[in-house]
Design a protein around this nucleic acid. Structure first.
Length: 930
DNA sequence: CGCGTCACG
DNA sequence: GACGTACGTGACGCGT
C-alpha cells in the first residue's frame, strides 16, 4: 500500500517565542523558565502522536534558526535589527528545544547562513517534487508563500487551525504566489522589513490585486491618482525591491539531511522519559508508555511550577560515577577547536572553566579554557602556557587571539547555554577579553540555592558529595607553599587532566542539579534573583572603587603615634611591658598581676578580656581597661583598614576591587572579601574617618542609598503586625511606637530599650539574652517579652509557625522562596538546637531582605540606562545599602532612579504591606554620602 | 590553624 | 533540667 508520505516541518524558533508569551500559564507575571519548553514539548508530542492517523505525519523535522548572520543582513543591515533581546527567563530555554526534540528522537535541523524559513522552503520544495504532502507547523506569515493547494498547508498549533489557500486568500486577498509582493509593499515591523511608507496591508493587497506583482506596480506609478501614494512609490521603489528580496525564501540550498532520514518511527519511551523526569514535567510523564500515544487531549497546563512538598530533609542519594581522564583532549589545532565548538553548538549546552596564572581575576591572565559537552567528553585549550622554567619552551598551543575569536560567537550564542562552576570568576575573565558570556547557568549558585545550610559548594566537595568522586587537587598539580607554580607553567598533559575534569564534573553536576530546581520550588529565586546576579556583581567587581592612598597613609601615621603613646601608658599602669594584643597575657596581667576581681574563664581556661569585660572594669575606674580598649580600637583600625586597604589598591586600575561571594552567607546575603568592604567602620567617629578614604573620580560624587529599617519592615509584613505596619505607613518613629506599646511612655530610656527588643525579635529572642542586653534581671526580661507578644500577637504566631515549619521540613523559606536548611533543628544537643531555632527565626527575614536588594541590583543598570544615566555606576553593596559613582550634576536624576528601583524591588512578584523607604545621600566621599 | 577579638548590617 | 546567653558575616594578631 503506497500511502502518500506526509512531511511535517516544525518551525521551532518561532514556536517557542509564541509559547512563551501566549500559553495560559505563562501569562503569569513571573514566567516560568521551563514553561515555553513545556508548551513546545506538549505540542511536539501531539504532532508526533499523529503517526498512522489520517493526515498525520510520516516524516518530521524541527527546523531552528542558526544564530549566525544570514544573507539578508548583507542585503540590509537593518534586517531584524529592531528585535528586542529575548526575555531573560526565555533565553535558557532555547537550548532545551534541541534537548526536547532529541528526546522525541526527531531530527533537529539548522544551517549556518540560512534562517529557519529558508530551510523550511528548501524541504518543502524537495518534498513536493518527490510527490509528498507537506505541513508547515508555524503561523509565520512569510511562510504562507509556500502554501499550495492539496500539497502544502500550514498548521497553527496555538489555535489548532489549518491554513490552506483559502485562509491565505482571506488574509492577504491574494494567493500564496503573490504574498511576497504584498509583504514587500506593506513591510514587516517584526523583521524590520521596510516596505513603502504609507502602505499597509489594505493598500498593498489592493495594488497587487490590480497590477499583479510588485514590478508592474512600480512601473505603473503614472496611473496612480493619489498624489502621496504615487510619490511614496516612486521615492521608495528601491526599498520596495529590497523588501521583495528580503521576504523571498531561499529554496534551492542543498538539504542538510536527506528527506528519507526524517522518517518518523514512533516515540521510543526511554530518552523521552528521562527528559521529562529531568524537566519535572509530571503530567506528561504520566502519559509515557501508558497510552502509547493515544491521548492527544492537548497539553494540560501545567505543573512545572507546582512545588511539591520537597523531601529535602535529607540530601539526595549519591550517584557513583566513573571518570575516564584518558578521554580528555588537549586542543592544539584549529581543526580540533572547530570540532569542539561545533559539538557544543549541536548539543545546545557546554560546560566551561577557565584556568589563569593568578587567583585575582582583575589582573589574572588566561592560561587556558576547558569545555565539556558530555560526561567524560571534555577538552582543555591552552592559550597562555609558558615553559615550566627558564630553559624550557612554551608547549605547542594555538594563538590566544584565534581561540578567543572562535570562542566568542559560541560563548555569546543565545542558543547555547554555558555552564560553569562559580561563573563570576570566568565571567570577569571573559569580560576583559570582550566576551559577554550568555546565556549561562552556574552550578555553584544552583548548589547554593538548593542546599544552603547543609552543604558546602566547592566543586571538589560537590564531586565527593554527589558522585563519590575525588577530583585532582589543585595542590597536586601546582604544588604548595614556596614551590607552588602558577597554572600557566603546568605541563600540558597534567593541565589537561585537571582542567578538563573540572568542566566534566561541572557538566555532570548541572545535569544532576538542574531538575531539582523545579522539583524543590527554587526556579524563581534561581532564575530571577541569583543567576542574573552573577553578571550584575561581576560588573561591580570589575568597576572597583577609588581609594585615596595618601589620606590613608596619613591616617595610619596618626594612629601609629597614638598607639605608641597608649602602649607606654598601659605599661605604666600595668607595672611593666607585655604583649597587649595577647588576650592570654592581658588576662594574666589584669587578674593575676593587678589582682582585679571578676575574671571569667571560658572553656579554654583563659580569662575573658573581651569588650564587655573591659567595659565593666573601665566602669569601675580601672584605667588600664580603658587604655587597652582605646589601644584595641586603634590597632584594629590601623591593621585592618588604613594599612591593609592601601595594599589592596590594584596597580593597574588604581582602584580597590572586592570580591563578592554569592554563596557566602546561608541566608542569601552576599559576603565581601579581599578586602571586605561590608565592614568599613561607621559607628564611631574615629573609625568613620576611614569612610572618607573612599572617594569618587574627579567630576563625580559618591552616592549612597540605603533601605531604612528594612528587616523590621519585613517582620511587620511577614508577622502581620497592624501597629507596626501602620507606623511604617505613616512614617512614624518605630522604636518610639514600640516603647509606647511596651512601657506606656516614650523617653530616651524606654525608646532605647524598645529598640533593643525590636532587634532581639529579629534575631530569635531568649529572655535571658534580652535581660543581659538590657541590664535588667531575667524576670524583667521575660516580662518585657511577654508584653511584646501580648501587644503584637502576630510576632508570636510568626515564630511558632516558622519553628513548626522548620522542624517539619528542615528548612525555612523567604518570601521569594529561597531556602535555608537547618540540619541542627533536631539536634540532641539543646544548645545546638536552640542556636538553629534562633537562626531559623531570623533567616526568612534576613533572607527576604537579601532577595529584595538583589532584585534591585539586577534591575539597576537597565533602569539607569533607560533614564539616560549609563554613566552612573553601581559599585558596592552593603546588605541594605548600594553605593554609586555619579557624574556631578546628575545627582538628583540618579537618586530618583535608584530610589524607585529599590523601593519597588518586591514588585511585581509581591505586594508588601509596608512601604520600603530608601534614604539617599551623596558627597565627595563615602563618609560624606551618608 | 584555632581562637579571641571586633569591624559591619 | 541541661544548655548558654541575639542573627549573619570577614580579617587580623596571637600562640601553638
Amino acid at each position: 500500500m503506497a500511502e502518500q508520505n506526509h512531511l511535517y516541518l516544525v518551525d521551532g524558533s518561532s514556536y517557542i517565542f509564541r509559547a512563551y508569551h501566549r500559553l495560559p500559564p505563562l501569562t503569569n507575571r513571573h514566567g516560568t523558565p521551563a514553561g515555553a519548553v513545556y508548551g513546545y514539548t506538549a505540542m511536539l508530542w501531539k504532532l508526533a502522536d499523529g503517526l498512522n492517523k489520517a493526515d498525520g505525519p510520516t516524516h518530521m523535522a524541527v527546523i531552528l534558526d542558526a544564530s549566525e548572520e544570514t544573507h539578508r543582513n548583507k542585503m540590509y543591515d537593518q534586517y531584524k535589527a529592531n528585535r528586542p533581546p529575548p526575555p531573560e527567563d526565555l533565553i535558557p530555554q532555547f537550548p532545551l528545544i534541541r534537548v526536547a526534540t532529541r528526546a522525541f528522537s526527531i531530527p533537529c535541523i539548522e544551517e549556518n547562513g540560512l534562517e529557519a524559513d529558508d530551510i523550511i522552503a528548501c524541504y518543502t520544495y524537495a518534498a513536493v517534487r518527490a510527490g509528498w504532502k507537506v505541513t508547515i507547523v508555524s503561523s509565520d506569515k512569510d511562510l504562507m508563500q509556500l502554501v499550495d493547494e492539496g500539497k502544502v498547508d500550514m498548521l497553527d498549533t496555538m489555535n489548532d487551525r489549518r491554513i490552506g489557500v483559502t485562509e491565505v486568500l482571506e488574509k492577504f486577498g491574494v494567493g500564496p504566489e503573490k504574498v511576497g509582493d504584498v509583504l514587500a509593499l506593506m513591510g514587516d515591523s517584526v523583521d524590520n522589513v521596510p516596505g513603502v511608507p504609507g502602505i499597509g496591508p489594505k493598500t498593498a493587497t489592493q495594488l497587487i490585486q490590480q497590477y499583479g506583482d510588485l514590478e508592474t506596480v512600480l512601473a505603473s506609478t503614472h496611473e496612480i491618482t493619489k498624489p502621496k501614494l504615487k510619490q511614496n512609490l516612486i521615492e521608495h521603489a528601491e526599498m520596495a525591491r529590497l523588501s521583495r528580496r528580503l521576504v523571498e525564501l531561499v529554496c534551492d540550498s542543498p538539504l542538510p539531511e536527506p528527506l528519507e532520514d526524517l522518517a518518523l518511527k514512533g516515540i521510543p519511551p526511554e530518552p523521552l522519559r528521562e527528559f521529562l523526569e529531568d524537566q519535572g514535567f509530571k503530567s506528561l510523564l504520566n502519559r509515557v508508555g501508558k497510552d502509547g500515544g493515544a491521548s492527544s487531549g492537548g497539553a494540560r497546563p501545567i505543573d512545572v511550577m507546582a512545588s511539591r512538598p520537597a523531601p529535602s530533609a535529607k540530601p539526595a542519594e549519591k550517584e557513583k560515577i566513573t571518570v575516564d581522564r584518558t578521554q580528555y583532549e588537549a586542543v592544539v589545532t584549529e581543526e580540533a577547536l572547530d570540532r569542539w565548538i561545533a559539538e557544543a553548538k549541536a548539543q545546545g549546552y557546554v560546560a566551561i572553566d577557565t584556568e589563569t596564572d593568578n587567583l585575582d581575576n582583575i589582573t589574572a591572565k588566561l592560561a587556558g579554557v576547558s569545555l565539556a559537552t558530555q560526561p567524560n567528553k571534555a577538552c582543555y585549550i591552552p592559550i597562555g602556557h609558558v615553559g615550566g622554567d627558564l630553559l624550557s619552551d612554551a608547549p605547542k598551543q594555538l594563538p590566544a587571539d584565534l581561540v578567543l575569536g572562535k570562542l566568542k560567537p559560541l560563548f555569546e550564542d543565545p542558543a547555547v547555554l554555558k555552564i560553569a562552576h562559580n561563573l563570576k570568576y570566568d565571567w570577569v575573565m571573559f569580560a576583559k577579553a570582550g566576551i559577554d558570556v550568555a546565556p549561562y547557568d552556574d552550578t555553584l549558585v544552583m548548589s547554593f540555592d538548593l542546599d544552603a545550610g547543609r552543604s558546602n559548594h566547592g566543586l571538589d566537595e560537590l564531586a565527593q558529595a554527589h558522585f563519590e568522586h575525588e577530583c585532582i587537587s589543585f595542590k597536586s598539580v601546582c604544588g604548595v607553599g614556596a614551590k607552588q607554580i602558577s597554572f600557566d607553567k603546568v605541563p600540558l598533559d597534567a593541565a589537561t587532566e585537571y582542567a578538563a575534569e573540572d568542566a566534566d564534573i561541572c557538566l555532570r553536576l548541572w545535569l544532576r542539579l538542574k531538575p531539582r530546581l523545579t522539583e524543590e520550588g527554587l526556579t524563581r529565586v534561581y532564575q530571577m534573583v541569583d543567576r542574573p546576579l552573577v553578571a550584575t556583581v561581576g560588573k561591580m567587581e570589575r568597576r572597583g572603587i577609588k581609594v585615596d592612598r595618601d589620606y590613608l597613609a596619613k591616617l595610619s601615621g596618626t594612629f601609629a603615634t597614638e598607639i605608641a603613646a597608649l602602649e607606654q601608658r598601659v605599661y605604666e599602669a600595668a607595672n611593666g611591658p607585655f604583649t597587649i594584643g595577647s588576650p592570654q597575657q592581658l588576662g594574666q596581667v589584669l587578674f593575676d598581676r593587678l589582682g582585679l576581681q571578676g575574671g571569667r574563664k571560658g572553656k579554654s581556661g583563659q580569662y575573658s578580656t573581651d569588650v564587655n569585660e573591659l567595659e565593666r572594669l573601665a566602669g569601675e575606674g580601672v584605667d588600664v581597661a580603658r587604655l587597652v580598649l582605646d589601644w584595641r580600637q586603634l590597632t584594629k583600625l590601623k591593621s585592618t583598614y588604613t594599612d591593609a586597604l592601601q595594599a589592596q589598591i590594584n596597580a593597574q586600575t588604581k582602584r580597590v576591587h572586592t570580591s563578592y561571594s554569592l554563596s557566602g552567607a546561608q541566608t542569601g546575603r552576599l559576603a565581601s572579601t579581599e578586602p571586605n568592604l561590608q565592614n568599613i567602620p561607621i559607628r564611631t567617629e574615629i573609625g568613620r574617618q576611614i569612610r572618607d578614604a573612599f572617594v569618587a573620580e574627579p567630576g563625580h560624587v559618591l552616592m549612597s542609598a540605603d533601605y531604612s529599617q528594612i528587616e523590621l519592615r519585613l517582620a511587620a509584613h511577614m508577622a502581620d503586625v497592624p501597629q507596626l505596619k501602620e507606623a511604617f505607613a505613616k512614617g512614624e518613629d518605630i522604636h518610639a511606637m514600640t516603647a509606647e506599646e511596651l512601657f506606656g511612655t516614650v523617653d530616651r530610656d524606654t525608646r532605647g530599650k524598645a529598640k533593643t527588643v525590636n532587634f532581639a525579635i529579629l534575631y530569635g529572642i531568649s529572655s535571658w539574652g534580652l535581660a543581659g542586653r538590657l541590664g535588667v534581671p531575667k524576670d524583667e526580661g521575660k516580662a518585657i517579652i511577654d508584653r511584646y507578644f501580648t501587644r503584637f500577637p502576630g510576632i508570636r504566631a510568626y515564630i511558632d509557625e516558622t519553628l513548626a515549619f522548620v522542624r517539619e521540613n528542615g528548612f525555612t523559606r523567604t518570601l521569594f522562596g529561597r531556602k535555608t536548611h537547618f540540619p541542627n533543628i533536631r539536634a540532641p544537643n539543646p544548645s545546638f538546637r536552640a542556636g538553629a531555632e534562633r537562626a531559623a527565626i531570623n533567616a526568612p527575614i534576613q533572607g527576604t531582605s537579601a532577595d529584595l536588594i538583589k532584585r534591585a541590583m539586577n534591575r539597576m543598570d537597565d533602569a539607569l540606562l533607560e533614564a539616560g544615566l549609563d554613566d552612573v555606576r553601581m559599585l558596592l553593596q552593603v546588605h541594605d545599602e548600594l553605593v554609586f559613582e555619579v557624574p556631578e550634576g546628575k545627582e538628583e536624576a540618579a537618586a530618583s532612579v535608584v530610589r524607585k528601583v529599590m523601593a519597588n524591588a518586591a514588585e511585581p512578584a509581591l505586594k508588601l504591606d509596608v512601604p520600603l523607604d530608601v534614604e539617599v545621600g551623596w558627597g565627595p566621599n563615602w563618609g560624606a554620602a551618608h
